[in-house]
Design a binder for these strands. Sequence first.
DNA 1: TTGAAATTGATAAACCGTCTCAAAAGGAAT
DNA 2: ATTCCTTTTGAGACGGTTTATCAATTTCAA
Lengths: 143, 143
Amino acid sequence: MSKHQKEMGVLKEHLGKHQLKYTRQRELILDAFLKQEHITAEEMYHQLARKDPHLGLATIYRTLNLFCEAGLAQARHFGTQTQYDNISHKGHHDHLICTDCGKIVEFENCDIERLQEEVATRNGFTIKTHRLELYGLCSRCRH
Amino acid sequence: MSKHQKEMGVLKEHLGKHQLKYTRQRELILDAFLKQEHITAEEMYHQLARKDPHLGLATIYRTLNLFCEAGLAQARHFGTQTQYDNISHKGHHDHLICTDCGKIVEFENCDIERLQEEVATRNGFTIKTHRLELYGLCSRCRH
DNA sequence: TTGAAATTGATAAACCGTCTCAAAAGGAAT
DNA sequence: ATTCCTTTTGAGACGGTTTATCAATTTCAA
């Protein structure tokens, strides 16, 4: 039995609502995905090759995009690749991204979140999720 | 004569330092670039096609990357494409996005920006640009 | 068990951005 | 202006990432 009951439930609910099916591959990919903070499709392809050598790369892309629609993942583009962030397990995480070396530092800041809520309320919005990315140079690349 | 004397100067200084040449294409692209807050190479390609139908897409990519090196632009990956941000443009704005109807509200919040700087400093980063998007439901779609 | 609908895997195709290279242009010295 | 060397350009080829295609397979409700 899976360790990720809650997320599995979110996925199944999304599948049910959209007449989609629960497949072995989707379960396999979700399990692997939830163990990561963020991962690329290619990385997951190699990682899962041992468990299921016939799992296709296209299926991984399709499934990760499905997770985004279900609210379990969030796609983020850096360099030439797409990172799929796990937002369901840890909640959202924001990123400091070095535009030179690609280094990524994750952070969370309650004060910023509170201000975001204020802004949203002032504009009549109810926030479901957000994305905050700070681009710049890390200490090593600044020199 | 160009309206963008200051930036033109920055570019020329960079060119001089690196034994690069001042060309008609670079002037044309800089002029177009500085009118935007951010633009993709493809967008600029179409935009400039009228002024110079023979301007190649590769030249635009090369030139926008040159602007990044000169400190006039900042590349940011958005969706599948690369956005080149005009960093001399100060009116940066963030977005509130309704996931239901697609409505987008722009906002600016100095307190959030200040906290972002704090986070960056604490992690040894120097921020050049950022992206903040709040996803949720607008007042109309909540009901 | 059956059958309609969704999914998969393999691969082709699309897409974005960079590289290549011959021709053209910049620009310093004459 | 001319020369000469270097850089740049434009056009298309190329490489890596992601999506589209489609026949075969799987899901799942009846």
